[in-house]
Structure formats: structure tokens, C-alpha cells
Design a protein around this nucleic acid. Structure first.
Length: 128
DNA sequence: AGGATGACATTAC
DNA sequence: GGTAATGCCATCC
């Protein structure tokens, strides 16, 4: 293997997602960058396999929009946490909204980055 | 072994 | 400013 254990990588992604503070969000690419392993699609897949006990709504795409189908459920969380939302003047649907990444994007502290980096390295190289 | 899929990113219009 | 098309990486059939 030496590439990445599915459960290990998923665990790392879930750990990052769980450490994101309320009102803040991260993109799939950012998590992949923090783990320094895999790509944005792998992060999304890991979250899809994750249980609902993790704040998956704090992880969204580069366009500032969560996964389709979960937008309605995620909107309640944003409203509850006070996340910066951008809603058009005439929304066609409840899912027609956007998160202001410029205001809601969160970046971990250097110590957090280091922890995440070695965590990603740990899962990327489970050691023989 | 090879091709298709997926909770995406980036670039171009 | 947002939408459309193309590419990337890893896993599953």
C-alpha cells in the first residue's frame, strides 16, 4: 500500500473537519493541502463515507457552495452558527445560496498545520 | 490490465 | 461577479 489506508485517510479528514471552529469553513482542496496527501476528490469521498456526527457542512467546494442535496440541511447549520452567507435577491430555491469564502474561510494555526501535516503523512505512510 | 466513477480544483469565456 | 469545460488523484467494477 504505502499510498493511504481508506479508513486512515478518512479518519484524518474527519479529524480536520471536527477541529474546524463554528462560523468558519474549509474547502476540499484546503483539507487535501493541509494533509499534503491525495486530492480534493479523496476528501469528498472520505466525508461521504463519514458518519453524520462530523460537521461536514463546514467543508464546501471552491465555489463556496456545499454538496448538492445537502445544501438545504447545511443552510440550517450556517444560520445557527452565523456563517457569512450570500443569498441572491430572488432565490429560485432554498438551496440557491452561497457561502462567502472570503469571510468564512478558516485557516489552522501553525501548530495545527504541523499536526495535520504529520497526521496526513502518517496515513499516507502507515509504515510496513 | 483497463476503463469508469466521484460530497472537486483550476482556467477560460 | 458567475458559469462552462477540462484535468487530477485514488478507488471500484
Amino acid at each position: 500500500m504505502a499510498r493511504a489506508d481508506p479508513a486512515g485517510y478518512a479518519g484524518a479528514v474527519l479529524d480536520v473537519t471536527a477541529m474546524i471552529p463554528p462560523g468558519k469553513v474549509l474547502t476540499y482542496g484546503d483539507i487535501a493541502e493541509l494533509l499534503a496527501c491525495g486530492g480534493p476528490r479523496q476528501v469528498g469521498r472520505a466525508l461521504s463515507l463519514a458518519a453524520r456526527d462530523v460537521p461536514w457542512w463546514r467543508v464546501l467546494r471552491a465555489g463556496g457552495r456545499p454538496a448538492q442535496g445537502l445544501a438545504r440541511e447545511a443552510r440550517s447549520r450556517y444560520d445557527d452558527e452565523g456563517t457569512a452567507l450570500a443569498v441572491p435577491a430572488d432565490p429560485v430555491d432554498e438551496d440557491d445560496y452561497r457561502v462567502v469564502l472570503a469571510e468564512a474561510r478558516w485557516w489552522p494555526s501553525p501548530a495545527q498545520q504541523d499536526a495535520l501535516a504529520r497526521l496526513g503523512a502518517s496515513v499516507s505512510r502507515p509504515a510496513p
